[in-house]
Each structure stands twice: as structure tokens, then as C-alpha cells.
Design a protein around this nucleic acid. Sequence first.
DNA 1: TCAAGATTGATGCAGCTGCATTTAGTGGGG
DNA 2: CCCCACTAAATGCAGCTGCATCAATCTTGA
Lengths: 162, 162
Amino acid sequence: MKRKPSTEATAAWIRLMRVQSRVLDAVEHELKKAGFPPLAWYDALLELSRAPSGELRPVELEKQMLLPQYSTSRLIDRLVDEGLAARRECKADKRGQFVEITDAGRELQKKMWQAYSAAIEKHVGCKLSDADAVKLCSLLDRLGCSCNEAQPIAVRDVASAR
Amino acid sequence: MKRKPSTEATAAWIRLMRVQSRVLDAVEHELKKAGFPPLAWYDALLELSRAPSGELRPVELEKQMLLPQYSTSRLIDRLVDEGLAARRECKADKRGQFVEITDAGRELQKKMWQAYSAAIEKHVGCKLSDADAVKLCSLLDRLGCSCNEAQPIAVRDVASAR
DNA sequence: TCAAGATTGATGCAGCTGCATTTAGTGGGG
DNA sequence: CCCCACTAAATGCAGCTGCATCAATCTTGA
């Protein structure tokens, strides 16, 4: 008598929730301990630094980061307050704007990658062979692909970030 | 020239973060759409309902749910406010208390499992064979086991929840 | 027996999130 | 040309989280 969600699927769900939050907490904690801002800042700075001329429309950033609109808006506020990014007028569309990463922003992104990459290695890399990491990726991808498609790019981004 | 966190490990990290948040959002959203409270409430009600006499010390609940102390304290506040649980005096230790699930709490937990299990099936179960779910579990376990051990129990919990 | 330290739980504060709404500007059909 | 629907971004509000701290009680050891 099969259950609707199989025992196996339910167990996978639980693991996914628990392990992710545990690993994320660990990594975030290490970044904070090293005096860095939250991971979302890094993600945003990385996206900006990868953009052709170091600038993006908020609406682009929003799509890249899979964040709600208001969340992006406030994240940009904070980056600008800290001098890591600057708002530029958008001549083509006066509703909009461009957000440009500053030198300080690029520098912080690079510095954070030092700590970030070390944390990934510590909490993920060293616990998994490369082959297992690939298996994990492909299993996870099967869960995500139903409602999204932009991930392959993002992965390349981070992997080549420094 | 191997990078510190291998490309594969980094990709796995990204997938873990993205897929989890996507799947969690989807499931939480379905619960909310059906008029239910957040998942954390379910987890707490489940733990309480599984306890010998339907009651636990907050400090126990905290350990089961891997939540910070203040978070548990406030979660209990909300459950009590909604009549889903009640605070009971603890005679053995006057600093402490017991939290007991009410009939309404048990009922809500069961009703939520209907929607919750359907959501798990929809967002996890139907995208993964049982064999793949098992593989995913064991890969994830390798990431989590370094700083924790209480998961096998939790899995059994949910799997047998209804 | 009693003071020092540990443990249980609550809470004030700041920051972040989600939701709904607002403001401003664009663009297309009549 | 103008009105209306749509998109871009910001913001007020409520609720939740983390952090630090507090008060009450328990335990230990001299």
C-alpha cells in the first residue's frame, strides 16, 4: 500500500530542508564572523560585476537573483548606502534606473569570495567527492527544473567568480 | 590545477540553496493558499502530538526543531494565542513549564498533513523515483552529519505522521 | 548553608520579509 | 492625441528573526 508521498520522498524533503538550513547557517555564520555582510549582498555584487558594464536594471537583478521586487529594491538601497553600488539614471526609460557597482563593491565581492569559497569547501566540498557533487546536482536539478530554467548560468557564474 | 572548492562542489552548493528555497516557497505557498499557518507551526504541533502525553518542555521542543530558544518561545506564544497549545506549570522545576497540545492543535496538525503531504508529493515525490529519493537522502546526509545526529528520528516522525 | 554559576524562559530592539499600495512613466488602440 | 492598461520602482505596515539581556530558579561546591 503505497502512500501518496512515499516514505522515501518525504525523507528526502526533510533532509533537503534540514541540511540546507544547517549548511546555509554555517556558511552565513562564518561570513559574519569574518565581518562580512550577508550572502545576498555577495550575490548582488557578483551579478553586477559580471554585467557587461558593471551595471544592471533592478528588474534584471531581480530576475537573476530570483528575489521579489521589493526585496531587490531594498537590497539596492543598502548597497548604495554602503557605497558598494550607485544608482544611475536610465535615459531610455525614465521610470527605471541603472545600478552600477563601485570599485569598493568589486573589491568587497572579491574579498568575500575568499571567505565564501573557504566556507563552501569546508561545509560542502570536503564532505563530497566531485563525482558525488555531480550526482547531487543532477538530483537537485530534477526538483528545480519544473518552474525554472536560469540555473546553469548562475552556476557557471559562481564557479568562475575568482 | 584544482580549485579549493571544486567547480562541482560549488555547483552543488548553488543547487542546494536555490532548489531548497524554491521548493520550500512552493510548499509554503500552497499551505498558505489553503488557509493554513506556516510550516513551523506544523512541525511544532507534530512534535507535541508525538510526545508521550502530548506535552513537552519548551527546551525539548527547541532541540527537536533545531530552533533558537527565543524563536521557540515566540512560536509557543502564537500557538497558545490560537488555542492550539496550552502552557502547563512544571512542578518539578519552577523555572520551566510544559506545553501541551490541545484537541484543536491535534486536529489542525492532521488537516495540515493533508495539504502538506500533497504538496510534498507534488513538488518532490512526483519528480523523483523512490530510488533516487534514497540516493538524494544519503548524499544530503553526508553534508549534515558533521554537526548533528538527530535526523533519523525526525524522518520517521514525519513519514508516519498520518 | 549559602554564594557563584548554570539553566529556563521572556522580552526590548533593530533589521529583514511579505503584502498591498503608491508614484511615475510607457505605449498602444481608438 | 489622449485615455487606459501596463511596467518600474519605492514605501508604509505588520509580522518574524537574531541578538543581547533579564528575571527567576536550580545546582554545586566550599
